[in-house]
């Protein structure tokens, strides 16, 4: 345990002292949020308005909050993975600079190094994502505060399990990468694709049935759904209180992936958590085995 603590401490220190790495990881969620607000804010808002029947006027504040909470959940869903990839670049850097060669001539087990990278990446990713949650809360307070304290806590829990998943995915991918070029290529692909795959940029419900079926195998989709539930729940309740029929609310919820359907059945909340946690654990185990066998060079 002492050795693991030393490794985690070393990795975290390096992440926070490498100003370029730390600041770019920290700033990226804020930039992403600004981009969302600028380019997607009105699209989302108009989409909500289009659902409302004639005769029902919702306060501007509520519509803004609904839009803001959807943007926030999209942001967090993407960040838990992209920030993890950014934080995890230390693993690649260590291979490139030869630090791993130095580690490999010590009696420490290879699996411990793998766990060390995993935990330190998860910690730094979580910290940055929690900072993004804090920024998001300020944004929600400005747009319209309808979120409850239990929902904030559940949102933090979602961020936690999704960080574990993002860290596991980035760790497994980075275990096979050993150059800056490969790392940049992977980061570019992940940044460009992940938002679509997890339903952050466009709701999965807006895709074709076949694509929805394919994406239902991807745990990130359930992550976005969980985040939507906890960030938007307060706003939906306020809509109900304003006299919007439940049928309309359900239609809006389905349109933003509040519910995910597999074979026309809604995936229950507990199952979403199990899918994400299970996948995170499974991928993390794969990663540890991959790290051990990759280091035994032939």
């Amino acid at each position: 345990m002492t050795m693991l603590y030393v490794l985690i401490k070393r990795n975290c220190k390096l992440f926070f002292r490498d100003k370029g790495l730390f600041l770019s990881s920290l700033i990226s969620p804020v930039i992403l949020l600004l981009l969302y607000i600028t380019f997607l804010g009105n699209v989302y808002k108009n989409s909500f308005i289009s659902f409302l029947p004639d005769g029902i006027d919702l306060p501007e504040k509520l519509l803004d909050s609904l839009t803001a909470s959807q943007l926030l959940s999209s942001l967090l869903s993407v960040c838990t993975v992209t920030v993890a990839f950014c934080s995890n670049s230390l693993m690649i850097q260590d291979k490139m600079t030869g630090v791993r060669r130095d580690f490999d001539v010590t009696p420490v087990k290879k699996s411990l190094f793998a766990v060390g990278y995993y935990v330190s990446t998860a910690l730094s990713t979580l910290l940055i994502c929690l900072a993004a949650v804090a920024v998001g809360m300020v944004y929600l307070a400005i747009s319209g505060w309808y979120i409850s304290i239990p929902d904030i806590l559940l949102l933090i829990f979602d961020v936690f399990i999704l960080t574990m998943l993002g860290t596991a995915i980035s760790s497994l991918v980075n275990a096979f990468i050993s150059s800056q070029g490969q790392s940049t290529a992977v980061m570019t692909i992940v940044s460009a694709c992940y938002g679509f795959i997890c339903g952050a940029y466009m709701p999965v419900s807006s895709f074709s049935k076949t694509l929805q079926k394919v994406l239902s195998f991807f745990p990130g989709v359930y992550g976005t759904s969980l985040l939507r539930r906890h960030s938007m729940q307060g706003a939906f309740e306020a809509m109900k209180d304003s006299g919007v029929p439940q049928q309309i609310i359900s239609a809006i919820q389905d349109s933003v992936d509040y519910n995910i359907y597999v074979s026309d059945k809604a995936v229950p909340y507990y199952l979403m958590i199990l899918i994400i946690s299970g996948c995170a654990l499974l991928i993390a185990i794969f990663y540890i085995f991959a790290s051990i066998f990759r280091r035994k060079k032939r």
């Binding site: 050795m3 220190k13 490498d18 630090v99 130095d102 420490v108």
Partner: peptide, 21 residues
């Protein structure tokens, strides 16, 4: 080539490597 961590101090570098033994 040097394989120690450039962003850590000399003491921190040696501390982390010594712990491995």
């Amino acid at each position: 080539n040097s394989v120690l961590d450039p962003f850590l101090t000399v003491r921190e570098n040696l501390e982390s490597r010594a712990a491995m033994y």
